[in-house]
Amino acid sequence: MNHLIRYVFKHKNTGKIETKRCYLSQLETNPTEALAPFVNDSDYDLISRDLCFDEEKGVFVGDLIYVTTWLGNYIASVNLGEYEQDGSGDEYEPSKCFGFYAEALIKASTDEDGFEVVPDYLVQNSMLELESYNRIGTIYENNEQREGEKSAWDYVT
């Protein structure tokens, strides 16, 4: 399997964020060419290296996603690692899992009727279990709005 990786670089003087996506096979055959000009340029710092979860939607670890469920909608961050999964609604003890998961940013939100949008047992949820989600940004992107577009942080506040 050929994994897609996103590299995030920050320009030391301007603070501008640059990203470069490449497949693992590209790095194995010619790493300098795959990440040029950032590798050989002392003006850039590597600030993140993220695996891709959903190549079709361009969702990587570290991204913010807008999750749509029958309980309500919420913002989550995409993570890779160990988490606890409990789809039983607190009927059983959660299972320790490892993989890509979404973690709700605002864990104690309620809808207009006072019901929990993200119950405790769904705060950390396998990406494979999500009904519907869309990428809205990364933690590295500029928080300033572009004309006519929402910033990822607009969904959170």
Rank of each mutant, 00 (worst) to 15 (best):
V39M: 13
P37N: 10
E55V: 11
V59Y: 04
V59S: 04
Y44I: 07
L46W: 04
S25M: 02
R49P: 01
Y44L: 08
T68S: 07
G62K: 02
D43T: 09
D50C: 15
T32I: 14
L24N: 12
L35N: 10
N30V: 01
S42A: 10
V39C: 07
E56S: 05
D41K: 00
V67H: 01
E28A: 05
S42F: 06
E56Y: 02
L51R: 14
T32D: 15
A34H: 09
D50T: 13
A34E: 03
V59L: 05
A36P: 00
A34L: 04
V39K: 12
A36G: 05
S25R: 03
N30D: 13
D54I: 09
A34R: 04
L35C: 08
Q26L: 04
L35K: 13
I65K: 04
R49E: 14
V61W: 01
T68I: 12
S48E: 14
L64D: 00
F38L: 07
V67G: 05
D43W: 00
T32F: 14
L27H: 03
Y44K: 09
G62F: 10
D45N: 14
C52L: 03
N40R: 09
T69D: 00
D63F: 07
R49D: 02
L51I: 09
E33N: 08
E55A: 15
E28F: 04
N40F: 00
S25N: 13
Y44G: 13
A34K: 08
T29A: 11
T69I: 01
V59E: 02
A34F: 08
N30W: 02
F53E: 05
F38P: 12
G62P: 00
D45M: 07
F38T: 12
D54A: 04
V61L: 03
Y66S: 07
D54L: 04
G58F: 05
G58N: 08
S42E: 07
L35D: 05
V59D: 06
T32E: 14
E56D: 06
K57L: 09
T68F: 10
E56F: 03
V61A: 11
E33D: 13
L27K: 05
F53G: 03
P37A: 12
S48A: 15
V39F: 12
E55W: 01
A34G: 05
N30I: 01
L51C: 06
P37H: 06
S48D: 15
N40M: 04
D50A: 14
D63K: 06
L64F: 15
V59R: 05
I47F: 07
L24D: 15
D41S: 15
I47L: 06
L46G: 07
N30C: 10
S42L: 05
F38N: 11
S48N: 10
L35P: 13
L46Y: 06
Y44H: 10
G62D: 09
D54V: 08
K57N: 06
A34T: 08
K57Y: 03
F60W: 07
L46I: 12
E55R: 15
Y66W: 11
Q26R: 09
I47V: 15
